[in-house]
C-alpha cells in the first residue's frame, strides 16, 4: 500500500474512527463514573456517536440535501444525499431526549430517597439498611425462640 492510498483511507474513514472514539468515551463514562447524572451524559454521548455514524454513512460526495429541486432550474443531474439515515436519526434524537428526561426523573427521585447521586453511597446505604433489617429479624427470631422455650419449660 502506498502512502497516498493510506492517507486516502484515513480521510475516508476518519469520521467512523471519531465515532468509535466518541462511543467508547461514552461507554467508559457509563461504566467508570459513579455519578448518576454523569452516567446519563455518557449514555447521550454513546447515542450521538451512533447518530453521527449513520449520518456519515449516508453522505454522498457532491450530493445535496435530499429536498427535490425543480429540474428545469438546474443543468445536469442532481445527486441527493441518502435521506433514509436522516429520517431514522431525526426521530431518534427526539426519542432520546424524552428517554433521558425519564432517566433524569429517576435520578431526582433517587436523590430524594437516598440523599445522594453517587453510586457507591447509594449502595452503601442499601447495604446498611439491609444489615439493619437482618439484625432486627435475627433479634426478633431469637426473642421468639426464647419465649417458645420458656412456654415449653412451663408445660
Amino acid at each position: 500500500m502506498s502512502w497516498t492510498s493510506l492517507i486516502d483511507h484515513a480521510i475516508g474513514h476518519y469520521n467512523y474512527w471519531v465515532c468509535v472514539v466518541l462511543m467508547m468515551l461514552g461507554f467508559y463514562i457509563v461504566i467508570a463514573s459513579g455519578n448518576l447524572i454523569k452516567k446519563i451524559i455518557g449514555l447521550n454521548l454513546f447515542q450521538t456517536a451512533v447518530i453521527m455514524f449513520y449520518i456519515s454513512m449516508g453522505k454522498i460526495d457532491g450530493g445535496t440535501a435530499p429536498i427535490l429541486v425543480d429540474p428545469e432550474k438546474v443543468s445536469g443531474p442532481v445527486v441527493y444525499t441518502n435521506p433514509l439515515p436522516s429520517v431514522l436519526m431525526l426521530t431518534a434524537i427526539v426519542v432520546g431526549v424524552a428517554t433521558s428526561a425519564l432517566g433524569l426523573a429517576l435520578v431526582v427521585r433517587i436523590k430524594e430517597a437516598y440523599g445522594s447521586i453517587e453510586e457507591d453511597e447509594i449502595l452503601a446505604a442499601d447495604r446498611a439498611s439491609d444489615a439493619k433489617e437482618q439484625a432486627q429479624y435475627a433479634a426478633s427470631a431469637a426473642q421468639a425462640a426464647k419465649t417458645e422455650a420458656a412456654q415449653q419449660g412451663h408445660a
Binding site: N44, T48, I51, I55, S56, G58, K59, I60, G63, T64, A65, P66, I67, T81, P85, S86, V87, M89, L90, I93, V94, G96, V97, S100
Partner: peptide, 18 residues
C-alpha cells in the same frame, strides 16, 4: 453532511431542551 432536518432537530433538542 446534508442532513439538514437532523441538524435542525439536534440544534433545538440537544443544545436547547436537553
Amino acid at each position: 453532511l446534508d442532513a439538514v432536518d437532523v441538524a435542525f432537530t439536534e440544534a433545538s433538542v440537544g443544545a436547547g431542551i436537553s
